[in-house]
Structure formats: C-alpha cells, structure tokens
Amino acid sequence: MSRRGILAGGAAMFLLPACMSNAEEGGFEVTRSADQWREMLSDAEYDVMREEGTEARNSSPLNAVKAPGTFHCKGCDQALFVTRTKFESGTGWPSFYAPLENAVATKPDPGLFGTRTEVHCDRCGSHLGHVFEDGPEPTGLRYCMNGISMYFEPEDGGARVIG
C-alpha cells in the first residue's frame, strides 16, 4: 500500500465518526428518521440534539433552576438528572455531578484539541453535552449539559421550564 493510501485511509477513519450523527448510528429504544426529528425539533434543538452542536453560553433558562425536580430529555422524555445533583459551575451551562441511573451513555468525541467525552440520552441518542473530571464531590465529575436538549419538571407540579 502506498503512503498516500495509508494517509487517506487514516484520515477517513478519523473523519467518518465525526461526520456521523446519532440519528445514523441507531441502536436506541426510541428512533426516528431525520425528517421526523426535524419535524418535532426547532432548528436550534436539531443542531444540538442530532448534529452534536452546542448552544450559546448562558442562553438556557435551565441555568437558573434551583427548585426540586427532574430534568428530562426533549427527544424522548426520559428523566436524566435531578436538581439535588445540580451545581453552579460558572461555565454558563447547566451542570450536574451525576445523572440518574441508566439515563445517559457516553462516547469519545475527538476534536482538534484532544478527545472529550460526549454525553447522550441512552434512550434516544440525543446529544446532551460533555462530561469532565473537574466537578465537585462525591463524583468529581461535571456533566456540562446543553439546556436546549432538556426540560425541567418541578417536583411540586408547577410549570415546566423548557431549556
């Protein structure tokens, strides 16, 4: 094999996973076609949840939520996080030190400046954000989430907050 062939193959292996969206990967309990996702989500929600984009810093109303309750996936309504695990990280995105059990999954997210760990809903595959190892005890983790991928259901039955 030529050097050019090896380089082209290596580039394809690196770039192909980055070009695939969660919708194409499949294997989730809740699945929809790209057209179905586009119909149910706004353009901004689709960009973040299906194309692995990032919402603007400090843009989510979920940053201010402190009431007891549960944060759910907008793609499938799965419960993801509870308020008692939320903390102020100073990043501009809703942050939690732990998800609910069996709510999220992770995968490597390679980029120009190294590999991060992507977090997605384990029921529908919607991109939620990333997890970092600089959070508070007891886990030491910071689940830095895009509020646009979630909504908040207050424990007291009050009004839902849409991220």
Rank of each mutant, 00 (worst) to 15 (best):
Val48His: 05
Leu7Ile: 13
Asp43Phe: 01
Ser2Glu: 15
Arg38Asn: 07
Gly157Tyr: 07
Arg57Asn: 08
Ala98Lys: 13
Cys144Pro: 00
Phe28Thr: 14
Gly111Leu: 10
Phe28Val: 10
Gly9Phe: 10
Glu24Val: 08
Thr139Trp: 02
Gly5Trp: 10
Ala98Ser: 14
Glu88Lys: 10
Asp77Val: 02
Gly147Val: 07
Ser60Ala: 05
Ala18Arg: 15
Glu24Leu: 12
Asn22Phe: 10
Arg32Gly: 07
Gln78Tyr: 02
Ala23Leu: 12
Ala8Thr: 14
Glu155Val: 08
Cys73Ile: 05
Pro94Asn: 04
Asp43Asn: 10
Asn63Arg: 07
Ser95Tyr: 02
Met145Trp: 00
Leu7Met: 15
Glu101Met: 07
Val30Arg: 14
Ser60Thr: 04
Tyr151Trp: 11
Met13Ile: 14
Ala103Ile: 03
Ala105Cys: 08
Met40Thr: 11
Phe81Thr: 03
Gly53Ala: 09
Thr91Ala: 07
Glu133Pro: 09
Ser42Asp: 06
Thr106Tyr: 09
His120Met: 09
Thr91Lys: 07
Ala8Cys: 11
Ala34Gln: 11
Tyr143Asn: 01
Arg4Val: 15
Gln78Ala: 11
Thr54Cys: 08
Ala56Cys: 08
Thr85Pro: 00
Asn58Trp: 09
Arg38Ser: 11
Asp47Ser: 13
Ser60Phe: 02
Thr85Cys: 01
Arg116Ala: 09
Pro136Gly: 01
Glu25Pro: 10
Gly69Tyr: 01
Gly158Arg: 03
Thr139Tyr: 00
Thr85Gln: 02
